[in-house]
Structures are given as C-alpha cells and as structure tokens.
Simulated scan of single mutants.
Amino acid sequence: MRTVVVAGNPKPQSKTLDAGLLLAEALGLSTPEVIDVVTLGPALFGWGDPAVVEAVALVQSADVVIFASPTYKATYTGVIKLFLDQFAGGTGLQGIVAVPLMLGAGPAHAMAPDVFLKPVLVELGAICPTPGLYQIDRTYAEDAAIPIWAARWAPVIHALAHADLSHPVTTRSNGA
C-alpha cells in the first residue's frame, strides 16, 4: 500500500510533518513518502513546474495520503491550499483515501480538520472515511490521541485502501 504524507507547514521539517509521520506509523501504513510542500517554493504559484508536477503525481499514485496542516486563522495554511490548487477539481484525488490532520495551539479549533480541510479534499475526489484528527502542537508526540485514533480508524483506512474503488457502487432495485 503506497502512503504519502503531505505537510503544508510554511516551515520545512515541521512538527506538522512529524505528526503526519507519527500518524502513518500508528495506522500501520507502509513507510510513507513525504511531500514537505514548502520546499516547492514559488513554483506553487504557477502551473507545470516539474517538481510540482512530480509531487502531484506522487499523491495521485498513493493509496492513502495524510494531509497535514497547522491551523492558521482557524483553517489550513495557504501553502497547502496552493498545493491542492494543483489538482483538477472533482477528480484530482479520485479514489485516494485521505486523512485530514491539523495541529494547533489550543482546543478552540478542534473541528478545523472536519470543517475546513476535509471538504476541500472531498471536493477534489478523495475518500475521507474518518473524522479528521486535531492535535495540540505542544503535546501531539506525547499524548495518547494519535494511537487511540489510529486504533479506532486503521481498519477502515486499510479496508478502503485495499478495496477496488474503480467500479461505481450499484444498488439493487426494490422493484418500485
């Protein structure tokens, strides 16, 4: 199963990236490939840059992608927004199991992954079968939230990542 962690923090090698890697490990996912979005720099402002195209292709080839962002002004960062703008609307993340993860300074924005990040991932075609995960940036590595969350949701993520999602779901007619 191919796994990618996308970190949308304006600082390279951030706590956000670390939290994404910890979550991938707790979920029992394969060793993830990493896209530290800020390292793509000004190329994110245009279209067709080879490094950005390669990063988009990496995400599109994944089975599971953890999209991690710090909370800025109660929502995700502009850096991750610029990266997500590189995907074609409605289909750019088609068939990918996506996990929204956000870090913040306090509990006031605990709904941000579900209210802000998850809808844009779904709009781009991703499958987001779980609630998003919000972590306090000072304690994410020590508290039990990541392992507890992972124990609950890993079976769902693994099942969907291994499912054949290439065929539309059909329903039986009840004869009506």
Rank of each mutant, 00 (worst) to 15 (best):
D36S: 11
S69F: 14
V97K: 00
D164N: 12
Q94S: 12
P70K: 03
Y76N: 02
W47Y: 15
R152Q: 10
Q86V: 02
L29T: 07
L44M: 09
D85V: 00
G132P: 15
D85G: 00
I66G: 00
T71D: 08
L101K: 00
V115W: 01
A105C: 04
G104H: 02
H158N: 09
L84A: 09
I80L: 08
G41H: 04
L44F: 10
V64N: 04
P50C: 00
Y140N: 07
I127E: 12
L44A: 11
V122Q: 13
A57Q: 14
F87Y: 03
I157A: 07
A68F: 12
H109E: 09
H167N: 11
L82D: 02
L21P: 05
Q86E: 01
S30A: 13
A51W: 13
D143A: 09
T39V: 06
M1R: 12
L165C: 02
Y72F: 15
S61T: 05
K11Y: 15
G89E: 01
N174S: 06
H167C: 07
V52I: 06
K15M: 05
V52T: 11
A145N: 14
P42R: 01
V37F: 10
I157Y: 01
T3W: 14
Y134P: 08
Y134I: 07
V59I: 14
L133F: 15
L21I: 09
V37G: 03
P131H: 05
T130P: 01
A51N: 14
M102Q: 10
V53R: 13
P155Q: 04
R172H: 05
A57D: 13
H162R: 05
V53L: 09
A62V: 05
A161D: 03
H109F: 10
I136K: 11
G90S: 04
L160Q: 12
T39N: 10
P70A: 05
G46V: 13
F87A: 06
L121F: 13
D18E: 15
Y72W: 13
L44E: 13
F45V: 07
V115T: 14
V38C: 11
A43K: 11
L93E: 00
L93R: 04
F83Q: 00
W47I: 14
V6L: 12
L133P: 14
P113W: 07
Y140E: 10
L121V: 10
D137S: 11
V120T: 15
L101N: 02
V122T: 14
V34M: 01
R152K: 09
N9S: 15
W153Q: 00
A57P: 00
A141H: 14
I96E: 09
P42M: 04
I80C: 08
A151R: 13
D85M: 00
V156Y: 08
D63E: 09
P131W: 08
S166V: 01
A151S: 15
T16F: 10
V169Q: 12
L124T: 12
V34A: 01
P131V: 02
P42T: 02
V37E: 03
R138A: 15
V59Q: 08
P107S: 06
A88Y: 01
S173E: 05
L117K: 06
L40C: 14
L40G: 14
V59H: 07
A55G: 06
V59M: 13
L101H: 05
I80T: 00
G48M: 05
V56D: 01
G125Y: 13
T3A: 15
A88G: 08
G46L: 10
A126D: 07
T31C: 08
P107D: 08
